[in-house]
Computed example of a mutant assay.
Amino acid sequence: MTLEILKTREELRNLIDAYASLGDEKKIAEQMELFTLDVTYKAYMGDFLAGDTTGRKKLENEFNSHASQVKTYFTMNGQHTVEIDGDTATGTSFSQIKMIREGEGKDIMTDYSVKYDDKYVFQNGKWLIKDRIGYFIIVETRPFL
């Protein structure tokens, strides 16, 4: 493994970690800078396609709408594997996402176990997410005490 590949792997890992951190902080405009302008983003809840968005501006609107309904996000990233091919790469990462929302006057926590399949591109000196598919594999909702 070359030093260049190790550097690229680290940059891609930093990209997915930045995505999680900025999302947790509800810094949606900054988070959008991690995507290409023509990004595609799909979200599956089990086998159901729950979201299918194309374009950074539309994605930003959707993320802002979602974030307005959430009191707190907390994300932990796990494994991240990548295959690099010059200025493009593919990757798979796993995350645990917790969200606190208010429902019927009570705080409700939803815990998501997510697998992301990504396509990355190197543009203007940095790696960006071009395509992302989120598979929300386990979803658990419960009162938050």
Score class of each variant (00 low, 15 high):
Ser21Trp: 13
Leu12Val: 01
Asn64Tyr: 09
Lys42Ala: 01
Asn61Cys: 04
Thr54Leu: 02
Arg56Phe: 05
Gly23Lys: 13
Phe35Ile: 03
Gly46Phe: 09
Ser65Gly: 15
Met32Asp: 02
Asn14Ser: 08
Lys26Trp: 08
Arg13Ala: 11
Arg56Asn: 06
Asp38Trp: 00
Gln31Ile: 05
Leu22Cys: 10
Asp24Trp: 12
Gly46Lys: 12
Ile28Glu: 03
Met45Gly: 10
His66Asp: 10
Leu49Asp: 03
Thr36Gln: 04
Glu30Leu: 11
Tyr41Thr: 01
Ala29Lys: 12
Phe63Ile: 14
Glu25Ala: 15
Glu60Pro: 02
Tyr44His: 08
Gly55Trp: 01
Ala20Asp: 07
Gly23Ile: 08
Ala50Val: 05
Val39Tyr: 01
Tyr19Asn: 01
Lys58Gly: 00
Asp47Glu: 15
Thr53Asn: 08
Asp47Asn: 14
Leu34Tyr: 11
Asn61Gly: 08
Ile28Arg: 04
Met32Asn: 05
Asp52Trp: 02
Lys27Leu: 13
Thr54Phe: 02
Arg56Met: 06
Tyr41Ala: 01
Gly46Ser: 07
Thr53Trp: 11
Thr53Tyr: 04
Asn14Gly: 13
Met45Arg: 14
Leu15Val: 03
Leu49Val: 03
Ala67His: 13
Asp24Gly: 03
Ala43Arg: 10
Glu62Phe: 05
Asp52Ser: 00
Lys58Ser: 09
Lys57Leu: 11
Gly55Asp: 03
Leu34Trp: 11
Lys26Thr: 07
Ser21Asp: 12
Met45Cys: 08
Ala29Cys: 04
Asp47Ile: 06
Ala43Val: 10
Ile16Arg: 03
Asp47Gly: 07
Gly46Ile: 04
Leu12Asp: 01
Asn14Cys: 06
Asp38Leu: 02
Lys42Ile: 00
Met45Asp: 10
Ser21Ile: 11
Ile28Pro: 05
Lys27Ser: 14
Asn61Val: 10
Leu12Tyr: 01
Gly23Ser: 15
Leu34Thr: 08
Glu62Thr: 07
Met45His: 15
Ala67Gly: 00
Met45Lys: 12
Asp24Phe: 08
Glu60Cys: 05
Asn61Trp: 05
